[in-house]
Amino acid sequence: MSDKPVFVALAEVKPLAGCELDPQKIAGACVRCYVSAKNERLAVKAIRAALATLRYEVVDIEWCVDDAEVEWENPANSEGLELVEAARKLGEVQFGEFHAWTGEEDES
């Protein structure tokens, strides 16, 4: 696994019935995803499959980049570094914190 790069993506998702986030209360969420893959296409495919298993509809993959080829705004972020290493070691998609919204913000 260590020869494969780790890709980081930002996904916008919508919870479906049976999801950990209640679709009756949560309209959507954004989450950083980390996966070891040979290329971006395979990384996005793995992320979509993992999110579907967790009962999320993928609204958009806003970006997907090779972690080693990007300068991050906070390169020493311990959570990000741990998730990159977990993705590399375990070979499974890892997720950061889900930042959710209710949709009530639209109602004014």
Rank of each mutant, 00 (worst) to 15 (best):
I61V: 07
A29S: 13
E73W: 02
G103R: 08
L51W: 07
D66F: 03
K4V: 03
L83P: 05
V35K: 01
V8M: 10
E92V: 10
E20D: 11
G80E: 02
V6Q: 06
Q24P: 00
C64M: 11
I61C: 13
M1Y: 02
Y34W: 08
A46H: 03
R55E: 09
C64P: 03
V6M: 11
R32L: 11
R88D: 04
A9T: 04
E92L: 09
C64K: 08
S108H: 09
D3G: 03
N77T: 02
V70G: 08
L54S: 09
A86T: 10
E12R: 11
F7C: 15
K89D: 08
K38D: 15
N77L: 08
S108M: 07
Q24W: 04
C19D: 04
V31D: 00
K14M: 13
N39P: 03
V13F: 06
D60N: 15
K14F: 05
I61S: 05
V8F: 03
A100Y: 03
G91K: 02
S36M: 11
E107T: 15
E73C: 07
K89N: 07
G91T: 06
R48L: 11
E73I: 00
W63M: 14
M1S: 12
G80P: 00
V13I: 13
A43D: 04
D106M: 10
T102Y: 03
K4F: 12
S78L: 12
G91E: 03
L54W: 00
P23I: 11
A29H: 01
Y56Q: 09
L83M: 15
D22T: 06
A46W: 01
L90C: 03
V84W: 01
V84K: 07
N39G: 10
L83T: 04
V44Y: 00
A68C: 13
E12M: 07
V93T: 13
D22V: 11
E79D: 11
V31T: 01
L10Y: 00
D22C: 14
F95V: 02
A27C: 10
L54K: 13
A52M: 02
R48P: 00
S78W: 01
P75K: 03
P75Q: 05
V58M: 10
F98S: 08
P15S: 15
A76Y: 02
K4M: 14
I47A: 12
L83H: 05
E107P: 09
V44C: 11
L21C: 10
A17P: 06
V44T: 08
P75W: 01
D22W: 00
D66R: 11
E85N: 10
E62D: 14
Q94G: 06
R55G: 04
L16G: 07
S108V: 13
K25D: 07
N74V: 12
L42V: 06
I47K: 04
L21K: 12
I47F: 09
P15A: 14
A52F: 00
N39M: 08
K14T: 15
V35E: 01
R48T: 10
P15Y: 05
L81Y: 01
V6H: 04
E85W: 04
E69C: 12
L51A: 12
V8N: 01
D67K: 09
Q24R: 13
E82K: 12
N74P: 01
